[in-house]
C-alpha cells in the first residue's frame, strides 16, 4: 500500500470526532515531549524528593511525621506545575502550533477542555508523587534518625489535590488570558502578591482582602489547616484568581484569529 492510498471517501460529516480522552492524552504528552517540558518535570520530581528528605533531616522532632513530609513535598509541585500549565497554553501561540491544533480540532473549547482535564490528571499525579516521596522521606527518617512517625490525616490527600488543582487551573487561566509565556508566568506570581501588599497598605481593605487574597487561604490549605470561614475565603479568592481569568481567556481563545 502506498503512503497516500486514496481509499473510497467516507462522508466527511459521519467521521467520528476525536474523543476527549484522546485529546487529553495528547495534551499530557505535549507537556512532556519538549525539552522545556522534560526538564521542568525533572526539576519538579527532584525538588519534591529533596523537600521530603530535607524535612526529615532538618525538621524538629514534631515535624518528622508522614503528614509533615507530605505537606512539604507537595510545595515544589504547587509552585512549578502552574508554570507547566501556563506553557501548555501559551506555547500554542508562541510556537504557533495553535495553527495545526485548531485546524485539527475546530471546536476550540474542546481543546481548552482537554487542557483542563490534563491539568486535573497532572495535579492528581503530583499528589501521588508527593505522597510517595513523603513515604520515602519518612522511611529514611525512621531508619536514619529513628524519629519518623507515620501519622497522617486522610483529608490531607484531598486538600493537597485541591491545592495542586488551584495552581494548575490558575496557570491555564492566566495562560489563556495573556497567550504569551513571559507575561503569563510573571503576572501569575506577581499579581496575587502585589494584591496582598496593596490590601495590607490601604486602610479598611483588611476585611475585603481576606475574601480575595489567594495567598493566606492556599497557605492554610497547604498546611492542611483550613476550616469553615477559611473555605469560604478560599472559594471567593479562587473565583477571582482562577474562574474570572479562565472565563476571559476562554472568550479570547474562541474569538481570536489564529495566524
Amino acid at each position: 500500500m502506498s503512503a497516500v492510498a486514496t481509499t473510497p471517501a467516507a462522508a466527511p460529516l459521519s467521521l467520528p470526532r476525536p474523543p476527549l480522552a484522546r485529546l487529553t492524552y495528547v495534551e499530557l504528552r505535549k507537556m512532556t515531549d519538549t525539552r522545556a517540558g522534560f526538564w521542568l518535570l525533572f526539576v519538579i520530581v527532584a525538588a519534591t524528593l529533596a523537600a521530603a528528605i530535607l524535612r526529615m533531616a532538618l525538621g524538629d522532632e514534631s515535624q518528622r511525621t508522614l503528614q509533615e513530609a507530605f505537606s512539604v513535598a507537595q510545595l515544589p509541585c504547587s509552585v512549578l506545575l502552574p508554570v507547566l500549565a501556563i506553557l501548555c497554553v501559551t506555547s500554542e501561540w508562541s510556537q504557533r502550533t495553535a495553527l495545526t491544533t485548531f485546524a485539527l480540532v475546530t471546536k476550540r473549547s474542546r481543546v481548552v477542555l482537554a487542557k483542563v482535564l490534563a491539568a486535573v490528571v497532572i495535579s492528581a499525579m503530583a499528589v501521588v508523587l508527593a505522597l510517595l516521596f513523603a513515604v520515602v522521606g519518612t522511611i529514611i527518617g525512621s531508619v536514619v534518625f529513628g524519629t519518623g512517625t507515620w501519622s497522617m490525616s486522610l483529608t490531607a490527600i484531598g486538600e493537597s489535590f485541591l491545592l495542586q488543582l488551584i495552581g494548575t487551573l490558575g496557570g491555564i487561566a492566566f495562560g489563556m488570558v495573556f497567550l504569551a509565556s513571559a507575561p503569563a508566568i510573571v503576572l501569575y506570581f506577581v499579581l496575587p502578591t502585589l494584591w496582598g501588599i496593596l490590601t495590607s497598605i490601604i486602610p479598611g481593605m483588611d476585611d475585603v482582602a481576606k475574601w480575595l487574597d489567594l495567598g493566606p487561604s492556599t497557605n492554610d490549605l497547604s498546611e492542611f489547616d483550613i476550616s469553615g470561614l477559611g473555605w469560604a475565603h478560599l472559594a471567593t479568592a479562587v473565583a477571582l484568581w482562577v474562574a474570572v481569568p479562565f472565563a476571559i481567556g476562554l472568550v479570547r481563545i474562541i474569538r481570536r484569529e489564529v495566524s
Binding site: A9, A10, P12, L13, L15, R17, P18, L104, T106, K107
Partner: peptide
C-alpha cells in the same frame, strides 16, 4: 460543509 463543522477535519 463549513470547515469548522467537520467533526474530524484531519481525516478529509
Amino acid at each position: 460543509t463549513d470547515y469548522r463543522r467537520l467533526p474530524n477535519p484531519g481525516l478529509c
